[in-house]
């Protein structure tokens, strides 16, 4: 049991530092590790747990915690969660410290300013990719377009926008 926990911790710990762009970037590697290398789950169970975690509210990265749970119970969930979160957490903490210490350096200001348009561009891309999936039905496309306009043009609370989308889905999808 302890062996599995350590193994989970190390497996997800490695994935944590590879997850640039979030959990979705490492799902294929997660599958390879869990199904093919360690044989902890079969492919169908992996897909089920993945779908369940996607449907649950919260950050995508929690799929690791769900897999840990199915593989080794609550302790497995703890190990997988710690593994997927802690290394990236530590890195963010360290970078924040360096950034604060060197805040006055012109090159660092340029790096920070330069990364902003790239990050916003990438976030726009993630929205477009999500919208493409939603646009499989015409109603989904309409909801996405109206939501984008509302969010862009008004200061409306985003939770209302999401709730309205859900209700539109109930009514028309």
């Amino acid at each position: 049991m302890g062996g599995v926990l350590l193994s989970l911790l190390l497996t997800f710990g490695t994935l944590s530092l590879l997850a640039v762009g979030g959990a979705n970037a490492v799902v294929p590697e997660m599958h390879r590790q869990i199904v093919e290398i360690h044989g902890w789950l079969d492919s169908a169970t992996f897909a089920q747990v993945y779908a369940l975690a996607q449907a649950a509210p919260g950050p995508n990265i929690l799929v690791a915690a769900a897999l840990g749970w199915v593989i080794a119970g609550p302790a497995g969930m703890g190990a997988a969660f710690l593994g997927i979160v802690a290394p990236a957490w530590g890195l963010a903490w360290w970078v924040a410290g360096v950034t604060e210490r060197l805040a006055a350096k012109p090159w660092l200001k340029a790096v920070r300013a330069g990364l902003v348009p790239i990050a916003i561009g990438l976030i726009l891309a993630s929205g477009l990719i999500m919208a493409q999936a939603a646009a499989a039905q015409l109603v989904g496309l309409a909801v996405a377009v109206v939501a984008a306009l509302l969010v862009w043009r008004t200061e409306l609370n985003l939770l209302w926008v999401l709730a309205a989308g859900g209700v539109a889905g109930l009514a028309f999808l």
Partner: peptide
């Protein structure tokens, strides 16, 4: 429906 709205929200 929520997923579609979230897509629009991100854009």
């Amino acid at each position: 429906g929520i997923a579609a709205a979230a897509a629009g929200m991100v854009v």
